[in-house]
Amino acid sequence: MAESAHDHDQDHRQLPPIVMEDHELTYFEKQLTAILNLLVEKKIITLDELRRTIEENNAATPAVGARIVAKAWTDGEFLAALRQNANAAIAGIGIRPDRLTEAKIVTPVNTESLHHVVVCTLCSCYPRLLLGQPPDWYKSEAYRRRVVLDPRGTLLEMGLELPASMEVRVVDSTAEVRYLVIPRRPAGAEGWGEAELARLVTKESMVGVAEALSPTAVLNG
């Protein structure tokens, strides 16, 4: 926490309203504003740290995760390092997913016999620094309930049909671990480099509700 005179002045400024909408603040919006004001007043965070954190969160996109997947597809040593300690492996290629929390990153690998799909049934835990903000469907009650109650049926509705011979593992991300699924590498992209392969990797495929894109679709798209 910086303690310069400048920061000190800033801390006593009124926080801007959290929402600038034409409606009365809801209960939770008021609560959020009150907590933020308290955190700043008690010097637990500064407005500048808040701004920077929001900007960093908003700047994260699925491209970060896609880079990790493409490297895992092409670099066996990196894949082994991911399995061993994903936080360290990811930091080793210049990405810092663990800066804000002590969350542990785990990267389940989808194979021809095992498919992982991630959910957070209690809220919306999501590897935000690797994938950006979670999509609305990920936060919906429908997805959070139904993918546990009927994994294959829910995936089928989302457009992913998995063979009966394949084991489906629904991974419920409710505690200290954030999951980034490594999707199956699609056929037809042999010899592609990491940057090209990353174009095949969608956030849906890294949550496990879709396959990675087919190379022909990307080339023709």
Partner: peptide, 14 residues
């Protein structure tokens, strides 16, 4: 629900 695949698992961190 016994109609679900006996292969499938739900993995929870506890």
């Amino acid at each position: 629900n016994d109609s679900l695949s006996p292969r499938d698992r739900v993995v929870v961190d506890i």
